[in-house]
Amino acid sequence: METVAIPTKAKISLIAITKQYITPRTGQTTLAVSDVSLNIQQGEFLCIVGPSGCGKSTILSMIAGLTKPSSGTISMDGNAIHGPGRERGVVFQDYALFPWKTVRENIEFGPRFRDRAPLSTAARRELVDHYIELVSLNGSEDKYPHELSGGMRQRCAFARALANEPDVLLMDEPFAALDAQTRLILQEELLRIWGEELPRDKRKTVVFITHGIDEAVFLADRVAVMSNHPGQIKMEKPIGLPRPRNEGVRLTTDFQKLVDEIWQLIRHDAYEATIGKAGIKQA
């Protein structure tokens, strides 16, 4: 196990987070997340990987303020998180676009309807234009979500989160529903939009949930690897690959080694999650 020195001033900090669920039908308690502590630095791109059902989405949901931890504290810039807030934007796995709103209206939803400091029509127009341009949705501004392809919906959801100008971006398996080629393209796009070349204090802090190890290694500054039953962080792996990264990085031995190292670590859990305990003995 590798130890990572805990820096003094983290952007987001999770201290001894536990989350239990009670199944209403049986009354049984399930431990989804157990004693997770994690620090995320300003401008860091952190990926959390793990097998299905390891509680990684629960962690994201708790940072977003949509779920309350059973015990432990989560804070941002030293202030405890009690609920959802504009400073933490979320990109959901199923996009959650408003189907009755066009691309433009979806993207301007936050700046228009948020409680604090909503923008005027003119300011909004400029801002939304900028983000439509950034995610290359020009020409589709007036389409409805059902008229878009999966990749375009994804970019629209991304732009909606960005246009609200959060400090932290939380992404819950945003590329999971896409086909392989679109996913590769959007991974590179994501790094470009995030601003790989910018200095750390200018970048947004990103927490990115995925079950794709290669996706995590390609994107992240650091990968937190989770295990199942209960959901715990097994290892935090810094990814030292040089930035800006492009397709070529995937072919390097460093990349392959990192992917393999993480895979070996969660392999057992992944088998267990997929084919059950009986399957492992045979495998």
Binding site: A64, G65, L66, G83, P84, G85, R86, R88, G89, V90, F92, D94, A96, L97, F98, F109, G110, F113, R114, D115, R116, R160, A161, N164
Partner: peptide, 15 residues
Amino acid sequence: RLIQAAKVLGVGRSS
């Protein structure tokens, strides 16, 4: 999910 999406954008209850 849609309600959550609005919440994380900082949109209040009545809105």
